[in-house]
């Protein structure tokens, strides 16, 4: 119990780091995920191919490997960024592949007639997708996107191995100070629960709100 009260600022710093990584990487993942889903259903062949390649590569690469590729690889091309930004990039891109597939499966739940009606009225592809199809797909993609973002929050622990301040990394200094490893991890687990349950709560509200339409 003392381990938390004695090191409150250390825990708080770690929690804040995890929250930051989660929020920024989530925003990146959502933006890229929706964009890639749009690419994958676009009438332009090259866009579809790009979206498919994006998903295939990122979904099938182990996240740790992706971290190495970003942290060690990008500087070789002259792109040197703070480790935290690298971590957000790796997490965001990785998760975007899963968001993309969730959104795409949502798009597939909307009857094709909806898109055909929109097109027959002269709407362009972005209009058809944005005004008619996605709003109807949104409802069914809320739960899987929630799950994906919870996974992202937990995956952010890998960033600790790349000297980014986050919650899991808190155990290292505490271990050296001789605190009980069990209680150290107990409070770390509670920290993750705070983050993941918050995400659950947000998505429950979204589901209730958007579930009513129609």
């Amino acid at each position: 119990m003392n381990v938390l009260l004695d090191n409150l600022s250390l825990y708080a710093e770690g929690l804040l780091g995890t929250v930051e990584l989660t929020v920024y990487a989530s925003l990146l993942a959502l933006a890229l995920g929706f964009l890639m889903a749009a690419f994958r259903v676009a009438p332009v062949r090259s866009l579809r191919a790009f979206g498919t390649a994006w998903v295939t590569v990122l979904r099938n690469t182990p996240l740790t490997l992706l971290f190495f590729a970003v942290v060690l690889g990008l500087p070789r091309f002259g792109l040197v960024l703070p480790f935290k930004l690298f971590a957000i990039l790796a997490l965001g891109c990785y998760t975007s592949a899963f968001i993309c597939e969730a959104v795409r499966s949502g798009i597939n739940t909307v009857p094709t007639g909806q898109g055909e009606a929109a097109r027959s009225l002269g709407m362009t592809f972005p209009q058809t997708l944005g005004i008619v199809v996605l709003p109807q797909a949104f409802r069914s993609v809320i739960p899987p996107i929630g799950s994906t973002l919870i996974a992202l929050a937990k995956n952010s622990a890998i960033a600790g191995a790349f000297s980014v301040v986050e919650l899991l990394g808190v155990y290292k200094p505490l271990n050296e100070l001789g605190y009980s490893i069990i209680w150290t991890f107990f409070w770390i687990a509670v920290g993750y629960l705070i983050v993941t349950l918050s995400i659950s709560a947000i998505f429950n509200v979204l589901e209730k709100h958007y579930g009513v339409a129609r």
Partner: peptide, 20 residues
Amino acid sequence: LAQLRAEVGMVFQSFNLFAH
């Protein structure tokens, strides 16, 4: 193509009204 479709209306067997 979109512009041209705007000038030709279409009515479907399954109505296809925007459900939302």
